[in-house]
Amino acid sequence: MNRLPIGVRILAVLSFGFVSLPLLSLLWRVPWPRLWTLVASDTVTDALFLSLTSSVFAALLALALGVPLALQLSKMSGFAASIARAVVVLPMILPPVVGGAALLFAFGRNGLVGSLVADVSGVVLPYSISGVVLANTFVALPFVVITVEGALRAIDPRYALAASTLRANSSAITFRVVLPMVRPAVIAGGFIAWARALGEFGATITFAGNIQGKTQTLPLAVFVALESDREAALAMSVLLISVSLIVLISLRERWWPVR
């Protein structure tokens, strides 16, 4: 097998070290004997449950919203497409706090849409679990759109022609040919969205607040605990790292598109 130049290999080792060293240092400081009692506290179990459920719902919602958007964008070209793509990707670049504030102006109690929703249905989005999901979806959506649109654009357009000559209409082309062909990208996009939602902090705390047992996700709980109870913060960090690693390793081919 053809080996890489020595310089590249050294840089690769350094780079891996750069990523893993902080994590190892964190594990080094964890009070392992007291770990279980720390993790079993109400604050932690509530935050863990909220983080897992809200991130999964956010990933599903991001898929439901992102796939149609990716399909539409893949059909567009020119200036309109550039504008649309820039807007869709903006939440990736924007500081999440700004995203959270924007969400408040839109979906808050007095927001553009939020007031309407509250008047009609009585549902108030900010400072609720739905608010956590909404904030997570907002930051996770671009990852789905980018991943899926990239895959859609890579499909040979002649597949649609082949399906048309076999009497397929546009919904048959979309649901029987195009979407099944980008299935790996849809799954990968879903996992990246989930990962982004699990670690979400800024938009969540701005839009949904930090109410223990209601909107306090694990990242928020870690932040709070760093000030008051450093050992609890370390225990929760171990929890987040474990959950993420278990998911990533058990689903390895699905989220990292290795061919």
Binding site: L161, A162, S164, T165, L166, R167, A168
Partner: peptide, 8 residues
């Protein structure tokens, strides 16, 4: 295309 009944 789909109504032309031409195979490809």
């Amino acid at each position: 295309t789909r109504e032309r009944e031409l195979g490809m």
